[in-house]
Amino acid sequence: MASVTIRDVRKSYGAVEVMHGVSVDIDEGEFVVLVGPSGCGKSTLLRMLAGLEHITAGQILIGDKVVNDLPPKERDIAMVFQNYALYPHLTVAENMGFSLKLKGVSRHEIEQKVTPAAEILGLAHLLDRYPRQLSGGQRQRVAMGRAIVRDPQVFLFDEPLSNLDAKLRVTMRTEIKNLHHRLQTTTVYVTHDQIEAMTMADKIVVMHDGRVEQIGAPLELYDRPANLFVAGFIGSPAMNMIAGRIEGGAFVSEGGQRLPLPPGAHAGSGKLIYGARPEAITLGGDIPLTILVTEPTGAETHVVGQLGGTQVTCVFRERLTAGPGEIVNVAIDAAAVHLFDAESGVRLSN
């Protein structure tokens, strides 16, 4: 186990800078998720951490050792690849023991390490199979097994669940989380799926265009997104954004609808974005919502509608009898409203 420090790391391909000074502190044993849309640089950052990609500027420390120029094998890390990268010509047991074999560990000792790891992952009966004889979920487990056997300082996961079907993804999510709980190894996990990030992380790093947008605990990001990007990226369905300005102690949308302001919001001038999570909008109130689509999911009802000239999504706990075209009155929980500057996207309300 070790801490990981990323200090103002930059990456350029030729003259094009793709990573503009990223700094992240990862404590020992922490489970950190790098999340962001594709092309945001999260995988590149992970690969720089692994030593597969050169660092143009800045420093990466594993423990208190600068690893910038160390080759991957000297960094004491293990990585689970998106396509698992299992050696097709080796059995499950050989795949898992490959790194130990390279180190010259005796066959007996390899077996002693592989067997318990296989048992943890439920692979004990598959040790003699070849990767192509395994299902996606099993391959995923072998890839993790290979990492566990190494007993590294840091685990790196590069979108490990993106090749699995939705149901398996949920199961594996729990398994990975469980595994981390058991082994307490520092983990850096890359995903573009914000739900994975929310459910698994101790700390989330939201990245966008080669920059860190916000770092924090999952609910911290959910409750206090630092800017419009994080606000829109975290949460599903996404936060509703209504453009407008403050007039006379209330928020007036571009469509002329007056909306309640969060307590303590100072009457700033200029264009603002009014952010309300779908569940902050509740039935019963005085704001008219024209229903466009209703999506009953059983436990709750998702409603897409027009509110003050903007399309919004609401999640109601109640079942709704009204259909498309009808108007229902809703209220917005002012305490849960976020205000952002429309120009800079920065959060204004506290």
Binding site: G51, K73, A78, A85, Y87, L102, K103
Partner: peptide, 20 residues
């Protein structure tokens, strides 16, 4: 990625060639 996995697993370039 197989070569990268082997590099992380500690294989030298020659080992990556002969074993992967």
């Amino acid at each position: 990625s197989l070569n990268e996995a082997a590099a992380i697993d500690g294989a030298t370039p020659w080992q990556r060639f002969t074993k992967v």
